[in-house]
Design a protein around this nucleic acid. Structure first.
Lengths: 243, 243
DNA sequence: TATTGACTCTCACGTTACGTGATAGCTTAT
DNA sequence: ATAAGCTATCACGTAACGTGAGAGTCAATA
């Protein structure tokens, strides 16, 4: 089948097929001597898989790796991704809710507290958040921020200690078992504080670890985690001072 | 306040502020004689509004127009946008559901019909869909496609007629009242077919009309609508033939 | 057979909302 | 005076294609 046929069959553009060819994601099994792309049935099956992973939100680079590496655990990957989708929906729910309230507010139907106004949004202020966002994604960080903001006073020292511990560990061997244990502790701590949606955060963190192969080195992870924790503390202490 | 202060306060990057300045979205009220940007309190308030509209998903160009035009009906705009958000969530729900089923399928827990496999996805095949997608957005077109596919046979002639009508109208005065009436009819027709989620589609269509000012000319709209209808018919007749 | 129309190819720049250096000037503290 | 830290302006990079431009290919028709 030639480009246009394929494009119409699956509902994408010819340019998209050209693009997939360009980046080596889907190269047709044959070309005519005039240089026309001719797609085989196998190509079409691959395309279906590509479109599936694309639709659920995987970037093309990732899809390429998934398809290239037969040993890759698709099930696990998809499971992790689903957690992100669910978290995304949760965010979306909050935004919709906030927009709804904003509309009612504009119409004078209800009052809005300053807190209400930005529920689901992120106007927090901290310098290291950027890294944390790159590391776990927006939703996870937002969630964590809220948790930290509502964190019980008694936990401050505990966190303090954990931070120092982590800071020293990452100077030694960031990929060590210890680092992972420290991370587990951090999760445990947040868990104690109590949160149902923390599940998503845990999932994301574990994904990052499991996803090691996509990361240059685990060092970045330790770095980002340490900074994120420092930041979490800063937010916490800020809140205390402003009380 | 200088760039970094502002950036940290609201949780965005310095580059973002530079960018907003570049595109004229937020120009600081003052600059020092060295050329440093100095943001006033009013600038900060504007920034809050920008971030609000951005968070709910408006593109920067749109935000700029909203802020520049005081006569702009923000309430109406936000209402329309909310419909899109709700539709987005509905799509997300389906994708999550499909992923869930796919996982279970992989684990051998359940059977999946071919239909199940792509529920919520879009592998429909029609050449003009592209234009329609540009016009109303993906979700609306997908929804409409499904409706059209399930369309009752008796409506074919009605649609046929409407199409010819529209086609002639758009050769005369595409921006006319008549065109809008024809559009209304089209909506009515789809409504008759019956669909709850059609609401979203209607919202989007109306948004496009209300949004006229953002479109080069209504001609494109007529063009796209005609093509979309032609396409809808093609899909319909295809289905009949394959029965 | 020549031409038309539909299809194909390969550049290569445009899009969104910034990220990421590079290079250089400004400000303040020591 | 020098270093640290902040600021400025280019200007290219990103993701996933869209959108022509210019040119070659294929099948059917006049």
């Amino acid at each position: 089948m030639k480009v246009k046929e394929v494009a119409e069959l699956v509902g994408i553009s010819v340019r998209t097929l050209h693009h997939y060819d360009e980046i080596g994601l889907l190269k047709p099994d044959m070309t005519t001597n005039a240089g026309y792309r001719v797609y085989s049935d196998a190509n079409l099956e691959t395309l279906q898989q590509i479109l599936f992973f694309k639709e659920v939100g995987f970037p093309l680079k990732r899809i390429k790796m998934i398809l290239e590496d037969p040993s890759f655990d698709r099930e696990e990957t998809l499971e992790m991704h689903q957690k992100m989708l669910v978290e995304k929906r949760r965010r979306l729910d909050q935004v919709i809710d906030t927009v709804e309230k904003t509309l009612q507010h504009w119409k004078g139907e209800i009052e809005m507290t300053a807190e209400d106004k930005f529920k689901g949004f992120d106007f927090s202020h901290n310098p290291y958040e950027k890294e944390a966002r790159e590391c776990w994604g927006d939703r996870a960080v937002d969630e964590a921020n809220r948790k930290v903001n509502g964190m019980s006073e008694a936990k401050q020292e505990e966190i303090n200690e954990l931070y120092r511990e982590l800071a020293s560990i990452r100077h030694q061997d960031p990929a060590s078992k210890e680092a992972q244990e420290a991370i587990a502790k951090w999760y445990g701590l947040l868990n104690e504080i109590g949160s149902y949606s923390l599940e998503a955060f845990k999932g994301l963190g574990q994904m990052y670890i499991a996803d090691e192969r996509f990361t240059k080195n685990i060092d970045q992870f330790g770095e980002a985690l340490a900074q994120f924790m420092a930041d979490a503390m800063a937010v916490y202490t800020d809140n205390r001072q402003s009380d």
